[in-house]
Amino acid sequence: MTAAVEVENLSMSYKAPVRKGGLRAAFGSLVRREYKTVQALDEVSFTIAPGEVAGFIGPNGAGKTTTMKILSGILHPTGGAVQVLDTVPWQRRSAFLKRIAFVRGSQPVGGSQELTVMDSLEYQRLLYDVPRATFRRTLAELEALLDLEPLLERQLRALSLGERMRVGLAMALIYRPEVMFLDEPTIGLDVSAASQIREFVQEYVEQTGATVLLTSHYMADVASLCPRLILIDKGKVQYDGPLAELSARLSPYKLIRISTQGDPSPFGEVVDKADGRWVLRVPRDEVAGTTARLLQALEVVDLAVEEPPLEKVIDQAYREGLR
């Protein structure tokens, strides 16, 4: 099976003008400008299979959005090879553009802001050559999934951030793209709006088998949508694999959440305790033994073994790198 997205040794560098502070340096730069090369991406390689949902995470400035822009065709890289749906994206051929969507949480809806949502969707229908019958069917589905009906007659400029994101997704999905690049789709949204977007993406992928590459700083997005994680930092891929494996690799501990009237502190490091509920940190390879000993020694009302919070794991990866 051909990969939906194939990235090989992708590099991107910029030449940024630099100069020292002060009048002398300012005059000097009129005659001789100095540049510094910024390496945004450095030999990045990965492939994404058709129908796969991959999370693309990394700290600010890691190169996530640059990669997304290259994969969607906005940017032309300085090195490496990229194929999306067997096409070189930056050639921006119409046939290719009709098969992909790039939705940015920071700018979910482009185009005329005075238009109503329905007018904008109608324009998308024309632009992407969607047959009327298919358009009506897809619109009905999107209306149900994204609760679009109350928004259809509203002008784009009058929509709230959450509504703009829902409309942005509807405009991108009305032509049923096979590959979606979602760049921070839940940025700035409240908990329920973010959860609604996540559920929608999940349902869309299940229904259509679309391939998705998603960047987000919210680990809830990544944990709920992406079985696979690609972690990028300083323009290099630091990790590519299942989420659980990353967690195990970074955190040699698990958390045992226990409700008991006894004192479980001798069994592990106490992370939290309140009203008879304790959270213990225990080395991964001792979890089974410790759990058995706890059940024997104490009267346990409830016990659960959990992975450490993903936020903590990822924060550790950003700060300390991968071991």
């Binding site: 065709g73 906005i74 553009l97 009709k98 700018q107 482009g110």
Partner: peptide, 12 residues
């Protein structure tokens, strides 16, 4: 303002 990117991604 970078919204030219929206135009570049349209099939026209």
């Amino acid at each position: 303002n970078g919204t030219l990117s929206h135009e570049l991604l349209r099939p026209q």
